[in-house]
Design a protein around this nucleic acid. Sequence first.
DNA 1: AGAAATTATTAGGCATACCGAAACAATAGG
DNA 2: CCTATTGTTTCGGTATGCCTAATAATTTCT
Lengths: 237, 237
Amino acid sequence: MKTSTPSSSIEDYVKVIYSFTEWQRKPITSTQLAQRLGVANSSVSEMVRKLKDQGLVDHKPYSAVTLTSDGVRLALSMVRRHRLIETFLVRELGYRWDEVHDEAELLEHAVSDTFIERMAAKLGNPTRDPHGDPIPAADGSVLMPAAHRLSELDDGHTGRITRISDDNPELLRYLAAEDIDLDAEVEVVGRRPFGGPMVVRIGSAPAPREFDFADEVASALWVHSDAGHAGCSVTES
Amino acid sequence: MKTSTPSSSIEDYVKVIYSFTEWQRKPITSTQLAQRLGVANSSVSEMVRKLKDQGLVDHKPYSAVTLTSDGVRLALSMVRRHRLIETFLVRELGYRWDEVHDEAELLEHAVSDTFIERMAAKLGNPTRDPHGDPIPAADGSVLMPAAHRLSELDDGHTGRITRISDDNPELLRYLAAEDIDLDAEVEVVGRRPFGGPMVVRIGSAPAPREFDFADEVASALWVHSDAGHAGCSVTES
DNA sequence: AGAAATTATTAGGCATACCGAAACAATAGG
DNA sequence: CCTATTGTTTCGGTATGCCTAATAATTTCT
């Protein structure tokens, strides 16, 4: 269990392991890790051993990888960095939604804690990034909004968009062009037959617009359903 | 002569080689390079070979290292990055003079060209950084202010501070505490005997303050002398 | 000029992080 | 149940960039 500053690769591994479990339920496997990081499986095996040596993950050969509490702490600090940087790029430097991810990916490993905290202060300590993802606080506490994929909402139900997956830039550009943004009101009108697209109404009462959303779109949008389901606050030490 | 993206080490080497010749006249030697980069001499020999392979420097064994025009181009872009980032940290994130250098050092290798240009635009395309160093334009043109070390100014002469060396953070804090800043008026009153400190008056007519500056201070301050010496504009393709 | 001191380069190693290919587990199908 | 497929790890190898120690070139000093 070394105490040295983690390399940026290690930060990436830990962040990806964390992010996977943030919205999925299952822990991540080697192959999934390799895919998300764009490296060979063999590289993952090697790095996972290193992460284990440093006490950041638990791992038994041939099974999934989970974070230790140290790992979660590191992951949260990286996620905080990433999302604060994204917010900063959008609010202060005029970046568009779909441009911020890659830039944040580079910056998050480079800047100092001082930089992050000055930036956070300047932004007024935001708790959501431009895609609606929660920004962990400096002490590691996270407010996870209760959210479901729009694709899983039942017909007739209404809700509000609380999160938009940022892993498809093209999709983000489409949504931006259609002026579909966080906090928009959504109503599920129904589904086209034979597994066809979902029909939804988006926008406030006077002028709602109707869209046919392919599954790819409907599952990238996460909504807070008006019926029940309170938010929950999770604190990690 | 490869065309790949230069690694951050290569960027550092090229930047240091350039910076050395920016205010000195002589090209830099291996040992000086090693000292400024904080690496062993042998590492320099090795890297210089690599820089030469990539067409960034000219070098014959056992002699000094000079940049090729490609090298100068790369160096200018790194210097531009560094100084814009410093300016940004001071103006937008409330960093102090003496804090910016290390942070900029990290950021300059990480951010994209897009980031740099958006930042420059937001700052109004400044041409001097917080220490008075010229910021090269995106096209590689630099406005070098005509400046001399205060320590070399003759008794009785007056001038204006145009640059403050940023390599000693403690000195920067001292100057900040004494409220000595860029563009201040300076008059050389005289020198204390036996190589003692220089006596200078700093500040505008109504309330000039008198200081005894050790050589270390007097040579960190660069002034534009009121007598003659016009600025010159140098353009590198 | 020749020895001594300085400066520079080469040689051999180390750590990180990646790869492809080969070997080894685990699960699924017949 | 035992083989086939898929998933995972191990093994050798690559590239970067750094180190120390040894060697070679260049100055400097007497």
